[in-house]
């Protein structure tokens, strides 16, 4: 009823958030600490969104670090061995991880959720083992190697430029996901997710679509991994760690599984909460709090943080009605 008035408000708010992200460094100063935290948040927004995209097709992964790390390694090797500038390697590295993603997806599409989770988890371990053993002559094994940074650090304000670059990449990524989800593909994916049998009955072959979402998800996870390494300036096999696989899950679920805004909100809120708890001197307690938060979210707020507003407004809208009666 009040659509006409509210629609621009939503856009204005998104615009405001973007604007805030843009001027943040100017407001608070281009401080190393803020920028480091913000850059890592942006990278994990891309990564969590990529992970989330897979769940749009009803699949879930416990080993996305495989793609995150592969992207990191492939791009780093392109930069260091072939001399390609970091920024240009991102699409190539993404494509490479995307192809690997489709290949891994081929073994997974027929599998049930648990099998899928296991297989993806296993791939992260297998790829890490390959990197440190058979591929060690190229990857330098556990020692890793130094990588050119996204913006060379002798550049004036290099970190600030890096921040804006990564910011731009994450906005483009989110827009792409938005586009994909609004397109026919997105609708088909939703159909498969909701009921694969019915989707099949209406003439949809789910396999190419599932593979497609695997590929896209791996592509952006790879880009995020490469960005992290170009930010660190050094790559080690720790990039395949279990924690790297788990963080996007935690971020996305607390934010809101299966929504575009979920991974973004989740990453921001959990990262900042994490930093906040850290400054209170909580170490193990932080993990306990995050774990409890995750369980509570799944049980009591399956839609994640993005659904809170809706729930609250439902509550508010209801109570005046009941008063009238």
């Amino acid at each position: 009823m009040i659509n006409a008035r509210d629609l621009p408000i939503k856009k204005i708010l998104i615009g405001l958030v973007l604007f805030f992200a843009l001027i943040f460094p100017i407001l608070f100063g281009a401080q190393l600490y803020y920028l480091t935290v913000l850059i890592l948040i942006l990278i994990f927004i891309i990564y969590s969104s990529a992970w989330n995209f897979l769940t749009f097709s009803g699949q879930g992964s416990l080993g996305h670090a495989a793609f995150f790390g592969l992207g990191g390694y492939f791009c780093s090797l392109l930069v260091m061995k072939a001399g390609i500038p970091p920024l240009l390697t991102l699409p190539i590295g993404g494509l490479f991880t995307g192809v690997i993603g489709v290949l891994i997806g081929l073994t997974c599409v027929r599998l049930r959720e648990w099998f899928l989770a296991m297989v993806t988890f296993g791939f992260a371990i297998i790829i890490q083992t390959l990197i440190v053993s058979q591929l060690a002559p190229i990857t330098n094994g556990w020692d890793g190697f130094g990588v050119t940074k996204l913006v060379p650090s002798d550049f004036p304000n290099s970190l600030l430029i890096e921040y804006y670059l990564i910011f731009a990449i994450s906005v483009i990524t989110l827009l792409l996901f938005r586009y994909l989800l609004k397109s026919k593909i997105g609708l088909t994916l939703a159909a498969i997710r909701e009921n694969e049998l019915e989707a099949k009955a209406s003439g949809i072959n789910p396999i190419p679509f599932k593979l497609f979402s695997f590929g896209v998800s791996a592509f952006f996870a790879g880009v995020a991994g490469a960005l992290e390494i170009f930010h660190f300036g050094y790559i080690t096999p720790e990039i395949f760690g279990v924690d790297i696989s788990f963080w996007p899950i935690i971020y996305t679920i607390t934010g809101g599984l299966g929504t575009l805004a979920g991974p973004v909100i989740g990453t921001i809120v959990i990262s900042l909460l994490w930093e906040g708890l850290n400054s209170f001197g909580l170490t193990y307690m932080r993990f306990v709090i995050i774990g409890i938060l995750l369980i509570l979210t799944i049980i009591f707020l399956p839609g994640g943080l993005v659904s809170i507003g809706g729930k609250l407004s439902k509550y508010w809208n209801k109570s005046p009605d009941s008063d009238k009666k």
């Binding site: 648990w114 989770a117 935690i250 993990f287 995050i290 774990g291 409890i292 995750l294 369980i295 799944i298």
Partner: peptide, 11 residues
């Protein structure tokens, strides 16, 4: 179920 297990692991 998979995600709840993650939370339990952390706790």
């Amino acid at each position: 179920e998979i995600f709840v297990s993650l939370g339990i692991i952390y706790v």
